[in-house]
Protein backbone atom coordinates (compact mmCIF):
# COMPACT_ATOMS: atom_id res chain seq x y z
CA UNK A 1 0.00 0.00 0.00
CA UNK A 2 1.27 3.49 -0.87
CA UNK A 3 2.37 5.74 1.97
CA UNK A 4 0.28 8.72 0.80
CA UNK A 5 -2.88 8.49 -1.28
CA UNK A 6 -4.86 11.46 -2.60
CA UNK A 7 -8.27 10.76 -4.09
CA UNK A 8 -9.97 13.38 -6.19
CA UNK A 9 -8.85 16.39 -4.16
CA UNK A 10 -10.66 19.65 -4.77
CA UNK A 11 -9.65 22.91 -3.15
CA UNK A 12 -11.49 26.10 -3.96
CA UNK A 13 -10.44 29.57 -2.78
CA UNK A 14 -12.73 32.56 -2.71
CA UNK A 15 -11.10 35.59 -4.30
CA UNK A 16 -12.29 39.02 -5.37
CA UNK A 17 -12.55 37.79 -8.94
CA UNK A 18 -14.66 34.80 -7.84
CA UNK A 19 -13.96 31.18 -6.98
CA UNK A 20 -10.54 29.79 -7.86
CA UNK A 21 -10.02 26.03 -8.15
CA UNK A 22 -6.50 25.78 -6.71
CA UNK A 23 -6.57 21.97 -6.91
CA UNK A 24 -9.04 20.51 -9.29
CA UNK A 25 -9.63 16.82 -8.81
CA UNK A 26 -6.09 15.61 -8.14
CA UNK A 27 -5.55 11.90 -7.43
CA UNK A 28 -2.00 10.76 -6.80
CA UNK A 29 -0.06 8.29 -4.67
CA UNK A 30 3.40 8.48 -3.10
CA UNK A 31 5.44 5.46 -2.11
CA UNK A 32 7.72 5.27 0.90
CA UNK A 33 11.28 6.43 0.16
CA UNK A 34 10.34 8.66 -2.78
CA UNK A 35 12.30 11.79 -3.71
CA UNK A 36 9.60 13.64 -5.63
CA UNK A 37 9.20 17.12 -6.99
CA UNK A 38 5.84 18.72 -7.66
CA UNK A 39 6.56 21.27 -10.32
CA UNK A 40 4.69 23.83 -12.28
CA UNK A 41 4.34 27.58 -12.82
CA UNK A 42 3.46 30.00 -10.04
CA UNK A 43 -0.18 29.70 -8.96
CA UNK A 44 -0.60 26.19 -10.37
CA UNK A 45 -1.45 24.81 -6.91
CA UNK A 46 1.89 23.27 -5.78
CA UNK A 47 1.87 24.81 -2.30
CA UNK A 48 -1.85 24.17 -1.89
CA UNK A 49 -1.33 20.50 -2.72
CA UNK A 50 1.59 20.25 -0.32
CA UNK A 51 -0.42 21.98 2.43
CA UNK A 52 -3.26 19.54 1.89
CA UNK A 53 -0.91 16.54 2.12
CA UNK A 54 0.58 17.99 5.31
CA UNK A 55 -2.85 18.55 6.88
CA UNK A 56 -2.19 22.28 7.06
CA UNK A 57 -5.19 23.06 4.87
CA UNK A 58 -8.38 21.09 4.36
CA UNK A 59 -9.60 20.35 0.83
CA UNK A 60 -13.24 21.06 -0.06
CA UNK A 61 -13.68 17.47 -1.15
CA UNK A 62 -11.71 14.31 -1.71
CA UNK A 63 -9.75 12.05 0.60
CA UNK A 64 -6.15 12.09 1.77
CA UNK A 65 -4.85 8.93 3.36
CA UNK A 66 -1.52 8.66 5.14
CA UNK A 67 -1.00 4.94 5.40
CA UNK A 68 -4.20 3.81 7.14
CA UNK A 69 -5.29 7.22 8.44
CA UNK A 70 -7.63 9.52 6.57
CA UNK A 71 -6.41 12.97 7.60
CA UNK A 72 -9.18 14.87 5.81
CA UNK A 73 -11.57 13.74 8.54
CA UNK A 74 -9.34 14.67 11.45
CA UNK A 75 -10.00 17.63 13.77
CA UNK A 76 -7.60 20.57 13.91
CA UNK A 77 -6.35 19.39 17.31
CA UNK A 78 -5.72 15.82 16.13
CA UNK A 79 -4.01 17.09 13.00
CA UNK A 80 -1.51 19.08 15.08
CA UNK A 81 -0.64 15.91 16.95
CA UNK A 82 -0.52 13.89 13.73
CA UNK A 83 1.87 16.36 12.10
CA UNK A 84 4.11 16.32 15.17
CA UNK A 85 4.48 12.55 15.02
CA UNK A 86 4.48 11.87 11.27
CA UNK A 87 5.47 14.81 9.10
CA UNK A 88 8.58 16.97 8.74
CA UNK A 89 8.27 20.42 7.21
CA UNK A 90 10.78 22.61 5.42
CA UNK A 91 9.35 25.99 4.55
CA UNK A 92 10.35 28.46 1.88
CA UNK A 93 11.52 31.06 4.39
CA UNK A 94 13.71 29.34 6.91
CA UNK A 95 11.26 29.67 9.78
CA UNK A 96 13.54 28.87 12.64
CA UNK A 97 12.70 30.03 16.14
CA UNK A 98 14.96 33.06 16.62
CA UNK A 99 15.56 32.62 20.37
CA UNK A 100 16.76 29.03 20.04
CA UNK A 101 20.21 27.89 18.94
CA UNK A 102 20.74 25.62 15.93
CA UNK A 103 20.81 22.48 18.10
CA UNK A 104 17.74 23.63 20.03
CA UNK A 105 15.86 24.36 16.81
CA UNK A 106 16.88 20.95 15.46
CA UNK A 107 15.69 19.12 18.55
CA UNK A 108 12.61 21.29 19.08
CA UNK A 109 10.19 18.66 17.78
CA UNK A 110 11.86 15.94 19.86
CA UNK A 111 11.46 18.09 22.96
CA UNK A 112 7.74 18.45 22.19
CA UNK A 113 7.57 14.69 21.83
CA UNK A 114 9.09 14.34 25.30
CA UNK A 115 12.34 12.71 24.17
CA UNK A 116 14.98 12.83 26.95
CA UNK A 117 17.54 15.61 26.60
CA UNK A 118 20.59 13.38 26.12
CA UNK A 119 18.96 11.33 23.34
CA UNK A 120 17.65 14.39 21.52
CA UNK A 121 20.99 16.17 21.77
CA UNK A 122 22.76 13.13 20.30
CA UNK A 123 20.23 13.01 17.46
CA UNK A 124 20.49 16.78 16.96
CA UNK A 125 24.27 16.70 16.73
CA UNK A 126 24.10 13.72 14.36
CA UNK A 127 21.79 15.65 12.04
CA UNK A 128 23.71 18.92 12.30
CA UNK A 129 26.80 16.93 11.37
CA UNK A 130 24.91 15.45 8.43
CA UNK A 131 24.00 18.95 7.20
CA UNK A 132 27.54 20.17 7.87
CA UNK A 133 26.72 22.50 10.73
CA UNK A 134 28.01 20.74 13.84
CA UNK A 135 30.32 23.70 14.50
CA UNK A 136 27.31 26.04 14.50
CA UNK A 137 25.28 24.05 17.02
CA UNK A 138 25.20 26.89 19.53
CA UNK A 139 24.62 29.68 17.02
CA UNK A 140 21.32 31.46 16.90
CA UNK A 141 19.53 31.86 13.52
CA UNK A 142 20.63 35.50 13.17
CA UNK A 143 24.25 34.28 13.31
CA UNK A 144 23.69 31.89 10.37
CA UNK A 145 23.46 32.57 6.64
CA UNK A 146 20.26 31.84 4.70
CA UNK A 147 21.65 28.55 3.40
CA UNK A 148 22.80 27.49 6.85
CA UNK A 149 19.39 28.32 8.32
CA UNK A 150 17.67 26.21 5.66
CA UNK A 151 20.01 23.31 6.45
CA UNK A 152 19.05 23.61 10.13
CA UNK A 153 15.39 23.57 9.01
CA UNK A 154 16.08 20.31 7.12
CA UNK A 155 17.79 18.85 10.19
CA UNK A 156 14.76 19.86 12.28
CA UNK A 157 12.37 18.28 9.79
CA UNK A 158 14.29 15.00 10.03
CA UNK A 159 14.97 14.97 13.76
CA UNK A 160 11.97 12.90 14.78
CA UNK A 161 12.43 10.49 11.84
CA UNK A 162 9.07 11.44 10.29
CA UNK A 163 7.35 9.23 7.75
CA UNK A 164 7.82 11.92 5.12
CA UNK A 165 9.16 15.44 4.68
CA UNK A 166 7.28 18.16 2.83
CA UNK A 167 9.50 20.93 1.51
CA UNK A 168 7.80 23.96 0.02
CA UNK A 169 10.23 25.62 -2.38
CA UNK A 170 13.15 25.03 0.00
CA UNK A 171 15.72 26.56 -2.34
CA UNK A 172 13.74 29.65 -3.32
CA UNK A 173 15.88 32.01 -1.25
CA UNK A 174 19.22 30.26 -1.67
CA UNK A 175 22.18 30.88 -3.96
CA UNK A 176 23.30 28.04 -6.25
CA UNK A 177 26.11 26.87 -3.96
CA UNK A 178 23.75 26.60 -0.97
CA UNK A 179 21.08 24.97 -3.15
CA UNK A 180 23.49 22.35 -4.37
CA UNK A 181 24.71 21.59 -0.83
CA UNK A 182 21.13 21.38 0.50
CA UNK A 183 20.08 19.02 -2.27
CA UNK A 184 23.12 16.84 -1.65
CA UNK A 185 22.19 16.61 2.01
CA UNK A 186 18.52 15.80 1.38
CA UNK A 187 19.40 13.26 -1.29
CA UNK A 188 21.89 11.58 1.04
CA UNK A 189 19.38 11.52 3.92
CA UNK A 190 16.79 10.10 1.54
CA UNK A 191 19.13 7.26 0.67
CA UNK A 192 20.60 6.78 4.14
CA UNK A 193 17.50 7.16 6.33
CA UNK A 194 15.01 6.21 3.60
CA UNK A 195 13.00 9.32 4.36
CA UNK A 196 10.35 10.24 1.81
CA UNK A 197 10.84 13.77 0.43
CA UNK A 198 8.16 15.66 -1.49
CA UNK A 199 9.12 19.07 -2.80
CA UNK A 200 7.13 21.79 -4.42
CA UNK A 201 9.44 23.77 -6.64
CA UNK A 202 9.95 25.53 -9.90
CA UNK A 203 13.71 25.50 -9.42
CA UNK A 204 15.33 23.52 -12.27
CA UNK A 205 18.21 22.47 -9.99
CA UNK A 206 15.75 20.68 -7.71
CA UNK A 207 13.81 19.20 -10.63
CA UNK A 208 17.05 17.78 -12.04
CA UNK A 209 17.76 15.92 -8.79
CA UNK A 210 14.24 14.51 -8.27
CA UNK A 211 13.62 10.86 -8.99
CA UNK A 212 9.93 11.46 -9.72
CA UNK A 213 8.38 14.60 -11.09
CA UNK A 214 4.70 15.52 -10.91
CA UNK A 215 3.66 18.33 -13.24
CA UNK A 216 0.83 20.52 -12.06
CA UNK A 217 -1.01 23.05 -14.20
CA UNK A 218 -4.16 24.97 -13.24
CA UNK A 219 -4.69 22.65 -10.29
CA UNK A 220 -4.54 19.44 -12.35
CA UNK A 221 -1.81 16.87 -12.85
CA UNK A 222 -0.60 16.99 -16.41
Amino acid sequence: MSLIRLKNILKIYESQSGKVRAINGVSVEFESGEFTSIVGPSGCGKTTLLNAIGGLDKPNSGEIWIDKTEITKMSDKDLIDFRLKNIGFVFQAYNLIPVLTAIENTTFILELQGVPKRIRNDRGMELLEAVGLSDKANSRPNQLSGGQQQRVAVARALASSPRFVLADEPTANLDSKSTSKLLDIMSELNSKEETTFIFSTHDQRVIDRARRIIYLEDGRIK
Partner: peptide, 8 residues
Protein backbone atom coordinates in the same frame (compact mmCIF):
# COMPACT_ATOMS: atom_id res chain seq x y z
CA UNK B 1 4.89 28.01 11.77
CA UNK B 2 4.96 26.31 15.17
CA UNK B 3 1.37 25.09 14.81
CA UNK B 4 2.33 23.68 11.40
CA UNK B 5 5.27 21.86 12.99
CA UNK B 6 2.96 20.29 15.55
CA UNK B 7 3.20 22.61 18.55
CA UNK B 8 -0.07 22.44 20.46
Amino acid sequence: MQIALGVK
